[in-house]
Design a protein around this nucleic acid. Structure first.
Lengths: 239, 239
DNA sequence: GTTGACAACTTGTCTAAACAAGTATATATT
DNA sequence: AATATATACTTGTTTAGACAAGTTGTCAAC
């Protein structure tokens, strides 16, 4: 890990431990240089990341003040795998694969020189129910491009897809785009989420890409309304 | 504006104009130095911001590739004022203030040395209906701390609160935390949003702070389910 | 007491340089 | 033909320094 990331971690840990409580100021950039034996720019990078993640607010002429930061809330926030979150929050969760299609196809947008073209691409299609504290809360429908991941063992889906991609295959996830909407529950939703007729679900559609910019996974998550929560931190930027 | 921001804008404009289409590479960092007469670190800052905002993906050893970027979708994304979004998307919108309380109070969390204390703080309370293309779509309930903004004219609420804070008062908005949940529609929702019994609404609660880290505004937005959409771009970070 | 200038802090911006590390291509070797 | 190697690109990390600009307290002048 690089120096800036190490300083970031150390400062974050001290913020969590209230060595630097909410409302207090972190050491100045010059002090960070001496404390950690780093250059100012390196310290500034650590501070910039803390600001980006919503832990501090930098104030010119004054310093970096620790601001209130709400922890991750289940189940959608940033791009963290379901299992990582569950472990972080010490929640009992279960993963039931109720549909597994190793040889399906999916229409995929292809960016050719002249506009967008739709082509049928081979995918592995997986449907899962996420059970939280004994109650079914989320349906996940995953479609994984075979051109990037030739096969996805059923066992990987029952455990953690992210762990399989990153630890087993050595792929590195880069970024994802997400869209959240609301929709009336379908028959499939009602069956697996145990909800009544006329109820609504939160639908989260996302496309995940690797660090080399290859999009390889499309996911549709359907959440029970009473269990759904999404938290976000945004900065006002004038550009 | 600083050099990095100027380069950011110029590159972004060229991405939009497809001088650098999706899938192509931007000029290398060394080339940016010559093109814009800047140092490498300055160019890297522009690129880092483009990556943060989801326009490019940097690949070590290769370059910065332009990736697909979905435009803002109405109505919640980042921290942009309602009016700014409406103008950007050329949407006909109307702003009806149906409740205006210049002298209300709100329980506010106070972070003392020993835990959190709730105190009643004087606020201006405003309730508005956002009408999009002739249809009521959102209810906004705003509570603005009088200790920061002594008074909010009704006219400002009918126009744009952000414009009033930033242009009239010279305040600079820094950041906001948001939480999205779903809830059954209340009588108030049904009355102003013209929806039927048993329907659901998307609830967006947010706290907005200034750049000096003073939280000064609490907002609860209630969206008609069929009009609600939220888009997000997230990077996978290993820390 | 109030004001104003100053000094000493803070963060913001920008530069030039060096080295590490990943990618791609041409070239020589087998 | 296949393989290894050199090398010329790319981005990633880190440093040391300079100057700009916002904040705060001190102190002299009024």
């Amino acid at each position: 890990m690089n120096k800036a990331a190490l300083v970031y971690q150390d400062l974050l840990q001290k913020i969590d431990a209230e060595v630097y409580p909410i409302g207090s100021y972190l050491p100045s950039e010059h002090q960070l240089c001496e404390l950690y034996g780093i250059s100012r720019e390196t310290g500034r990078k650590a501070l910039a990341t803390l600001a980006e993640d919503g832990y501090i607010q930098k104030i010119r002429g004054k310093g970096s003040i620790v601001i209130e930061h709400r922890q991750y809330e289940f189940p959608v926030s940033g791009i963290v795998s379901y299992k990582e979150l569950a472990e972080k929050l010490h929640i009992k969760t279960q993963n039931i694969v109720y549909d597994y299609q190793p040889d399906a196809t999916l229409p995929v947008a292809d960016f050719t020189s002249l506009g967008i073209e739709l082509t049928e691409a081979p995918v592995t299609a997986i449907k899962r129910v996420r059970v939280i504290d004994g109650e079914p809360a989320i349906i996940d429908k995953d479609y994984i491009l075979k051109s990037v991941v030739p096969e996805v063992p059923k066992q990987a889906a029952e455990d953690s897809l992210y762990a399989y991609f990153e630890n087993q295959l050595g792929l590195t996830i880069g970024y994802a785009t997400k869209e959240i909407t609301m929709a009336p529950a379908t028959d499939e939703d009602r069956e697996h989420l145990a909800i009544s007729k006329g109820a609504y679900v939160a639908v989260v559609r996302s496309v995940t890409s690797l660090t080399d910019a290859r999009a390889f996974q499309y996911t549709e998550s359907r959440h029970r309304a009473d269990r759904f929560s999404f938290r976000d931190f945004a900065r006002r930027t004038k550009k």
